[in-house]
Design a protein around this nucleic acid. Sequence first.
DNA 1: ATGGGTGATCTATTATAATAGATCAAAATC
DNA 2: GATTTTGATCTATTATAATAGATCACCCAT
Lengths: 194, 194
Amino acid sequence: MSYGTEQLAAQLKAAREAKGLSQRELSALAGVPQSHISKIENNAVDLRVSSLSHIAHALNLELMLVPRKAIPAVQSITRSVASAPVINAATQRELDRIRETVDALASHTSRASIDNLQRRIREITQIQSQIDPDILKKVRRILESIESSGSHEAVNLAVENIRALRNQLAHRASSQETLRAPRPAYRLEEDQDG
Amino acid sequence: MSYGTEQLAAQLKAAREAKGLSQRELSALAGVPQSHISKIENNAVDLRVSSLSHIAHALNLELMLVPRKAIPAVQSITRSVASAPVINAATQRELDRIRETVDALASHTSRASIDNLQRRIREITQIQSQIDPDILKKVRRILESIESSGSHEAVNLAVENIRALRNQLAHRASSQETLRAPRPAYRLEEDQDG
DNA sequence: ATGGGTGATCTATTATAATAGATCAAAATC
DNA sequence: GATTTTGATCTATTATAATAGATCACCCAT
């Protein structure tokens, strides 16, 4: 069912995920059942303003009525605020896991190879930019396969892999000033799988 | 009953009145019963988002979720847009009535006095500025009393009256331009505490 | 395999928004 | 003074949001 509120639904979902909250966590914060949040995010209900307001507040959002003419300006502001260099919680979690994996790897691998690897990891962590958690997940998979194989060359491959990722991210970070407009962090009309 | 939506209710009512619409007129535009609009404006219901959205659209407003940090900036924009020199519907209606009254007056009064009066009326109409309908109403009352009395001096008094109003409005209009020019756009208190 | 966390999807019940329509008092208008 | 407009307030009916709670499949990690 469509209620003409799909933008709001998508925005709520995006905001929740940007804060790294599960539906259950948001449910506790907003005082709304998880099942209802699910329906809302899937645009299956025409929710009441009080519900919307509660959920929005839990996500640090405010419901406002904006004059037609002011919409582009407001979107511009919203985008610039939303794209602040706050790291995504999911990304943060993946980074933590990578660090754990590297620590585990370090405990039974030669010092020299691991030092290089750890430096690369630190580099990535320092880049305050949005990183796709899936990419980090792949990196971790490689590290895990290394741990099981114990191969020296595999470690070098991993280092190489991460260096490439670092370069990619660094490039994106520097070109972000000019690219910010076509890459809104808050998408108002789309979801993010694809 | 309070639903934490009194801001929205007040804003809707203000927007409706700013457009010079009655609840019934808005009802027709938004496809929502007048009785319901009354309840909404009096904060007697926790309305659904679709209803809010319909009414907002009829009033050229859009429902948006705005990040906490962006609220002051958005309010600033909204204010500046709202104060745009768009003529109020109620004002427009009063101006139309004044014109009708003058026409009626012209049909049985000496040409010379009326010409001057009509020129003054035209001057006022040309000033695209917000005029308090109550002031215009007073002007019309004077014109009406003239029509009943038929006095020459009364016509001159009315002309004088309207000339004063014109000056007042012209002054306000010119000072408004100088106030709008250095409009501080919008500013984000972007402290980047990250 | 197992268990924790995820989000979607059921159930059943209650609360209330939304609707169409009538009525009313008070202004505004004629 | 009579008429119209406006906004608020009723009634009665229907539609559905909100709720609590259980369940399910899916991924992820042990």
